[in-house]
Design a protein around this nucleic acid. Structure first.
Length: 350
DNA sequence: AAATCGCCCAACCGCTGTCGC
DNA sequence: CGCGACAGCGGTTGGGCGATT
């Protein structure tokens, strides 16, 4: 690996860029394109290394960069994709037009990560923190089991993400196989594979319902405060296209169709909200947690029921906010798959 | 008003992957 | 195949700035 000497060269400037330098770089790229980054600084009359120029251009000067506050939908996308991809910021950035990987990384580290942590969710695994369980209930066996399950969940999630990616690749590259792949994809969705976190959340419910008495909450939730957002619920309502898979049960035909509808929802939001709600609907602190989720994901359970068409997809006798795990599962993957499908075909990830 | 603290984010560092010779 | 040059990526840093004491 020949590591370039780059900025180690004497006389090259480091640190913040001046408006004059920006102007030079912009003018040069505007006229010639960036070409070789290494050769650019000399040609553009800049006392910078090529790497610094590239970074300045890609993270700041590029004309198609959107700056400023992240929208709610962008936040949701980041959280969902981070659950799938981890810290692969460039991959995540390909799904957020006009946002740079650096910006997304910074936003995650300074905002989203903290908010999830504050709500008792591990920002790495996107699962409820298990230490909260052990310290809150004293049930170390359950906590250990959950920890174990979390590991399996992580492994499985990775495999599922890979499957989805591969499916996408095949769809793009091989139209003959694409139908089969879509079937696999659909089977994946319909086989009641719980969405990420769901197993743990279900178990978590069990632990909580057994061990938590009113007013007693795990560490990490005790000091939970309402997130700082001042948005109203109405403001939170966002439109997220929801891919719906309609699978034919005809085994000879095995046809699978995919249609796209638009609903005001995102599946993972009410999944998690549901799990929390199921623990103890009357607990005040729980409602704070729910507020937190509502703030992060954009709407409440009640909203979800309304938005999903009066609870048609959720009822089946279950009056809680979506007790239907299969439905949750489908919607979670629909949501992820929408992101996948919505991405450009040239995405390096999918 | 000054000092301190904490947050944010642009920029840097160092590693890996890719490509051409 | 091996090597070097280069681009790209993710982790980390540190300066600026607003909030708090």
């Amino acid at each position: 690996m020949g590591r370039s000497p780059c900025c180690e060269k004497v006389g090259l400037k480091k640190g913040p860029w001046t408006p004059e330098e920006d102007q030079k770089l912009l003018a040069y790229i505007d006229e010639h394109g960036h070409g070789s980054w290494r050769a650019l600084p000399a040609k553009a009359g800049l006392q910078r290394c090529g790497k610094s120029c590239r970074l300045r251009w890609t993270n700041y000067l590029r004309p198609d960069i959107k700056r400023g506050k992240f929208s709610l939908q962008e936040e949701q996308t980041i959280i969902q994709l981070h659950a799938l991809l981890g810290n692969r910021w460039s991959a995540i950035a390909t799904h957020l037009p006009k946002r740079t990987d650096n910006e997304i990384k910074n936003y995650w580290n300074t905002h989203l990560k903290k908010r999830l942590t504050k709500m008792g969710i591990d920002p790495v695994t996107h699962k409820p923190k298990t230490d909260a369980l052990s310290s809150g209930s004293g049930n170390s066996k359950n906590a250990a089991n959950l920890s174990h399950m979390a590991q399996w969940e992580s492994a499985r999630l990775e495999a599922e993400a890979r499957l989805v990616r591969e499916s996408k690749l095949v769809v793009v590259s091989n139209p003959v196989q694409s139908q089969t792949q879509t079937q696999i994809q659909t089977q994946l969705i319909n086989k009641s594979l719980p969405p990420p976190c769901l197993d743990v959340l279900k178990a978590w419910q069990g632990v909580w319902s057994k061990s938590i008495s009113p007013g007693m909450f795990p560490i990490g939730c005790d000091d939970l405060e309402s997130p700082t957002s001042t948005l109203s619920f109405a403001d939170h309502t966002v439109t997220i296209p929801n891919v719906v898979f309609n699978e034919s049960t005809d085994m000879n035909n095995s046809s699978t169709t995919t249609t796209t509808t638009t609903t005001n929802t995102t599946a993972s939001a009410w999944l998690i909200g549901d799990s929390f709600r199921a623990v103890n609907e009357n607990n005040m602190q729980l409602s704070n947690i729910m507020e937190g989720f509502t703030d992060i994901f954009g709407y409440s359970c009640e909203e979800h029921n309304t938005l999903m068409g009066g609870g048609d997809s959720l009822d089946n006798g279950d009056k809680s906010c979506g007790g239907n795990f299969e439905e949750n599962n489908k919607n979670y993957w629909n949501s992820i798959l929408y992101l996948v499908n919505a991405s450009s075909s040239g995405s390096p990830v999918f």
